[in-house]
Design a protein around this nucleic acid. Structure first.
Length: 123
DNA sequence: CTTTTGACTGGTG
DNA sequence: CCACCAGCCAAAA
């Protein structure tokens, strides 16, 4: 199905619960290489046609909303996060460590094998 | 086909 | 604290 890596990124991002956020690096590390963080960001850029991918819950390592410019509106990403209970100030997530969601800490290791989730399974 | 460029990160100087 | 470099993957020129 197209690019495997992007699909894996989307699967992970899709599991980020509302009110939680993750980072490009954490996702890349979960998928095997922390250095591929840029690619995770690039995958987010291509996630426009993936409405089921909450790209606004992915920020950089210090909780900065680096991708906010890609959400059309200047504060759309921030608004989305706030509506989920994530406090944002000066384009940065307040209490970032408190909202941080590490995929390696919640998703099964088999998930890294690029195995898509079972169909008909509610998230 | 080659080169450039990104929503990144960690290390080095 | 700031500047630069390497590593990773994919799309566009």
């Amino acid at each position: 199905m197209g690019s495997d890596y992007f699909d894996r990124v989307y699967e992970v991002v899709r599991r980020i619960p509302a009110g939680r956020v993750s980072t490009y690096g954490a996702i890349a590390e979960f998928l095997g290489s922390v250095s591929a963080a840029r690619t995770v960001g690039y995958a987010m850029n291509a996630s426009h046609s993936r409405p089921d991918v909450p790209a606004h819950r992915v920020v950089n390592r210090i909780g900065l909303l680096t991708g906010k410019h890609h959400f059309g509106g200047t504060h759309l990403m921030e608004e989305l996060l706030r509506s989920e209970g994530v406090e944002v100030e000066n384009d940065q997530i307040v209490g970032f460590a408190r909202h941080f969601w590490d995929p390696s800490d919640h998703l099964p290791r088999e998930f890294q094998q690029a195995e898509p989730p079972a169909e008909g399974r509610s998230i």
